[in-house]
Design a protein around this nucleic acid. Sequence first.
DNA 1: GAAGACCTGCTA
DNA 2: TAGCAGGTCTTC
Length: 271
Amino acid sequence: MPELPEVETIARQLRARGIEGREIGSAQVNWERTVAPLTAATFSKQVCGVTITQISRVGKWILFSLSSGQTLMIHLRMAGRFSMEPGAHDRLILRLSDGLSLYYRDTRKFGRWRLVDDPEVILSKLGPDALTRKFTLSYFTETLRKRQRKIKPLILDQAIVAGLGNIYADEALWESKIHPERVSNTLNDAELKNLFKAIKHVLRVGVKNRGTSLGKGKTNYRDVEGETGGHRAEVKAYGRGGQPCKRCKTPLKKTVVAQRGTHFCPSCQLR
DNA sequence: GAAGACCTGCTA
DNA sequence: TAGCAGGTCTTC
């Protein structure tokens, strides 16, 4: 569930909570696959006594730089979240200096904590982060022209551009009036530019609103403080099948594209 | 490409 | 009870 804006919100809040500079006294791993391929014992041993020097984000990854020289790379997948308070479904707990604890909660157990010597082993497989200057219009244009693939799965592909997930992909396509099944190399210059700008726009606004929370319950997105994201009210396409388009009033359609639920306006997003 | 796997919980 | 969910990985 968390995409770039949600992950960025969480990284900012972890810094605001003073996690940087704290030493890990011990790690309690309650679901061993979270730290795979390491075992819980090896993971705990390797992070014990190590200080978290810096917290950053690339795409949907959260990076904890460690004083040991290693990097703890965390991917929240569908339902991972952090809390400063204990709760149900805590899969990993870091006991930090000064009595502070950091709780990693993950109802669906999909999230992964990777302890690596060199983060590039993972990061080099990603395309540029959508909100950095590395993600340029010329890169985007050249990359999409070379491909002959439906546009929605292309912009969801983290090796092309890192950060978009199913919500913001639908939002960016709605914003730029492009049908999700358009084939990438049929897009003209104006369309490519509009889509590029829309991707940056929807993600920036998403960050400003501290992410998007939809449904209810234990798998719904919450930030570190337990708050829902404020972007829900700004969503134009995702989850709005059957409701009127906010541009032209035509009822939006919900279909499946590349095995993902997809929401679009059949009137203003032309194929 | 598509389908299944990994998981649990919510909704219809 | 079946179907679906904000993500990715593996295997056809």
